[in-house]
């Protein structure tokens, strides 16, 4: 039963995650935290951080992580496969009708309409993570500093700021 739930949850994530990993976060959170309670709020935050720190798509990372936490290696296999299935299915389906897909007006307008949806989704991801993880003035200050740094130093790998921010937390909260 748990395998079926994992399968369906990540099948939904795979089918509706348009616009990249950050836009997929609210979908993942809804399934994994709100609906099935597989991860706590804290664990979800940790998963997002780990996904940023490791290579690979957030969808795969969260499927593997959640599946493993809930039932072990077989769980991560089922969840990861479920996340990839929509890609396999849709590419195979569209492959033969590629020019139709690219020229069909309704399809293209639908895809164009996803731009505001993706902005809203990433906004929800930011709001929800801030609500869960920013609880004191130090965190607000740290977030503001990182935002300014990331925004004006686009050439520096954001992972560096992420690590430094973690170290700052280690020092501040540890003392």
């Amino acid at each position: 039963m748990i395998y079926l739930q994992l399968f369906l949850a990540f099948l939904r994530v795979g089918f509706f995650s348009f616009g990249g990993g950050m836009a997929a976060l609210p979908l993942i959170e809804k399934e994994v935290v709100d609906t099935y309670h597989w991860l706590s709020n804290g664990e979800f935050l940790e998963l997002v951080t780990l996904s940023e720190l490791t290579p690979g798509p957030i969808g795969i990372n969260s499927a593997t992580f959640t599946g493993f936490k809930v039932v072990g290696v077989w769980g991560s296999l089922v969840a990861t496969l479920a996340f990839c299935l929509p890609s396999i299915f849709l590419v195979s389906l569209i492959f033969r009708f590629l020019s139709y897909f690219e020229e069909n007006v309704i399809v293209q307008h639908f895809l164009r309409g996803l731009r505001p949806a993706v902005i809203a989704l990433i906004g929800i991801a930011a709001y929800s993570l801030a609500q869960k993880g920013i609880k004191d003035w130090f965190a607000i200050g740290l977030g503001t500093v990182v935002f300014i740094l990331v925004y004006y130093r686009k050439k520096t790998d954001p992972i560096l700021f992420l690590l430094l921010s973690g170290v700052a937390g280690l020092i501040w909260y540890g003392s």
């Binding site: 950050m22 976060l25 804290g42 935050l45 940790e46 997002v48 951080t49 940023e52 990433i122 991801a125 930011a126 993570l129 801030a130 869960k132 993880g133 920013i134 965190a139 607000i140 740290l142 977030g143 503001t144 990182v146 935002f147 990331v150 925004y151 954001p158 700021f161 992420l162 690590l163 430094l164 921010s165 973690g166 170290v167 700052a168 937390g169 280690l170 501040w172 909260y173 540890g174």
Partner: peptide
Amino acid sequence: NFFRGATPAIVALIIGA
């Protein structure tokens, strides 16, 4: 403590996006 510090940075990255 490390993850408590990293979370504001994640939020900052997402707001940047």
